[in-house]
Design a protein around this nucleic acid. Structure first.
Lengths: 248, 248
DNA sequence: CGCGCCGTTGAGTTGTCTCAAATCACGTGG
DNA sequence: CCACGTGATTTGAGACAACTCAACGGCGCG
């Protein structure tokens, strides 16, 4: 609440960050300024928690850089990684539409910069401002579709295919043919993100390498035949390769 | 478009149906009347298709009675059941926020009554009417949460636990202790809904019966110890038993 | 009565997990 | 610059869960 000292230093870059976000872009400059004033730029270390499941949803976050893991934990200590998000994604925002309780936790898996914004402000903005409500609808609906694919993927694809699918989403469909990819975060995290153990990930990636033209050096992956890979992956999926709306 | 003949016979009951729905309840009577006029009550046989994936989303539907299966199909013919919905649920509505293409198919698995409504009208209503947009936000957000649980369930629970979880959601937490449940639809459909084969379902249900106090006669299930069942199920889940917001 | 559908059961296969150990990658301190 | 420690990744062996294919029993319906 009391950031008067830092306020006028921070506001200009913060406003710029907000403008790059669909949710804020349609807002009136005044409304956006309200958010910019209330925003706090946070630098988070690897491992630090943005919020936990069942926390009061006092804040929501706009990720500026770095990867954040969204997860739930079971009573007996198992963890499911629901999603990994980065640059440009909002998290914790949908809680305001429910009971203002976070339905999952969020933690930085590497150094992260994020804007922290008060949920109350967003709640108000959605209630008062039609454009903001529409932007929010768009965001949620994209999210919904993404999650449907997730369910399909877990149900219908085996480990190798899920990995292949993950790689395909990193590919530029119009890129030059030997495509060079860099895995965006640790293999063990990709494994968790895809709902498998890291041992299984390792073996399944090897299987994928053998069965499609693919080479792997640490976190560098080279795809030499995109078609072959997409046939291998997408035969067990309802979407063909350049599957839109899906990332990371 | 030309239902003048049936219109005045149908409108009264249709208006009543709409009023029972959160999406329409907050609307002005005039706007609701517009929907009621454009609505068509459909009676669908078992197996009939409401729409298919990749269809143009010309209509959305309010289910009045009977169960509808939401699904996607892969290239090589496998099917994933994304959800089963009935009485009071909207389907196909979220397509209007995307590219007006259905991202899943919908088919009746038994005789179904449904109201068919033009998507264009909803799109218009959301754009013009703030209350409607907010109602839509609420619906989508409930949906989002539900899907997150789905992902968690597929990742963390084994077959027996998923079945137990399904049964728990049919239980009234305040009910008298020998709880009598009736499975809402065929076992093979429950299996598909839970992401397993029907053989696996059969065996896993037997395992569940052995390991918790549970008896099964055809589609009748009797739960005599709710706590025991919920411990068995919820130890592998992030929610404890009376898990709100989840049904079906 | 006989057909067809649903559900169950059996036998064998495949996929993923567990546990344990070896190896690799990288940053720190000497 | 190198040795070391820590965490990430890979590999191996064996257990277990879920799947496939096949056959059978029950039930409703013509």
């Amino acid at each position: 609440m009391a950031q008067t000292a830092t306020a006028y230093r921070d506001e200009a870059p913060i406003a710029a960050l907000l403008e790059g976000q669909p949710l804020f872009r349609g807002m009136s400059p005044e409304l956006r300024a309200t958010f910019a004033q209330a925003a706090q730029l946070q630098s988070l270390n690897k491992g630090s928690v943005l919020f936990l499941q069942d926390d009061e949803a006092e804040w929501f976050y706009l990720i500026i850089s770095g990867w954040v893991k969204l997860f739930t934990e079971t009573m007996d200590g198992d963890e499911a990684v629901i999603d990994m998000v980065s640059n440009g994604h909002l998290i914790g925002d949908s809680a305001i539409l429910e009971d203002s309780i976070h339905s999952f936790g969020a933690a930085a898996v590497e150094p992260v910069k994020a804007l922290r914004l008060p949920s109350s402000l967003l709640k108000q903005a959605i209630t008062d401002d039609h454009k903001t409500a529409l932007a929010m609808l768009g965001a949620l609906s994209r999210h919904r579709k993404r999650q449907s694919r997730e369910i399909e993927s877990l149900t219908l694809q085996n480990a190798s295919q899920r990995i292949g699918c993950f790689l395909l989403r990193l590919c530029d469909p119009n890129g030059q043919m030997p495509l060079e990819l860099t895995l965006p975060y640790d293999k063990s995290l990709i494994a968790a993100r895809l709902g498998m153990k890291s041992e299984t990930f390792s073996r399944a990636l090897n299987k994928l390498r053998k069965e499609t033209t693919l080479s792997i050096k640490g976190s560098m992956v080279t795809v030499s035949d995109l078609d072959e890979l997409s046939v291998y992956v997408c035969s067990a999926c309802s979407n063909e390769f350049p599957c839109k709306d899906l990332h990371g």
